[in-house]
Nucleic acid binder design. Structure first.
Lengths: 113, 113
DNA sequence: TCATGATATAAGTATTTAATTATATAGTTA
DNA sequence: TAACTATATAATTAAATACTTATATCATGA
């Protein structure tokens, strides 16, 4: 059992951000592959501002990072933090619903991003 | 990397409960050994009702369990849940402050529980 | 049985949070 | 440059949350 060894102070804000169904699903999606916002909107069936606001929190906390490519902004997990192994293990402990991948593929086809 | 394989629905409420400094410290204490409420009050320097209310939430979610022994109620981690391995790994990923164990010992001496 | 100590519950409150709607910004293409 | 698409931000609001203080419960021991 490998330890990531982060402090309570470091762990709490990370756990807070993962402890929301919408954000947890977002990071689970990003654990599969990078995604642009429109895909998340489709998959999660939620308003675009809601998704953007969740992404801002995740970005501020450095859990995710963005890459702009033309019109689209692709999000990905930020692997450059001390707590990334902690986040990664949590994500790997969670079984994404079967439908998540299906929905991600569908979203990718609907949007041309 | 062994997977605990819990669902998003199962993970979110567990993460919500762990995503609080006080509760996370409580479960970190219980990961060391069982404790009674008065020890937690001492270690965390918080009011007894505040601790009791956190414990109720943790108990309702089956993250912890209680054993009454006379006047004292000892709490411990509840190992009988599907999500226990998930909780355990999170706790093992977090370095408890050096002072925590010291404080736990001191509390144990101050109270006769 | 009465006083005491340990813990739980209730009621109230201030803060945080996650949504919504409306609007702004920024890149793309005609 | 104008229209369009993708994304972000702002303002607002309802709900959830983590305390506080006051009180109740429950076991123990005089």
């Amino acid at each position: 059992m490998e330890k990531t060894g982060i402090s309570v102070e470091e762990a709490v804000p990370v756990l807070k951000l993962l402890a929301d169904r919408t954000r947890l699903t977002i990071v689970l999606m990003l654990h599969q592959r990078q995604c642009c916002v429109c895909e998340m909107v489709d998959v999660l069936g939620m308003s675009q501002p809601a998704i953007s606001q969740h992404l801002r929190k995740l970005r501020d906390a450095k859990i995710v990072a963005e890459d702009r490519r033309g019109q689209w902004i692709y999000y990905r997990l930020n692997r450059e933090t001390t707590f990334f192994p902690f986040v990664e293990y949590i994500l790997e402990s969670i079984q994404a619903e079967e439908t998540l991948i299906t929905k991600m593929d569908t979203a990718k086809n609907i949007n041309q991003c």
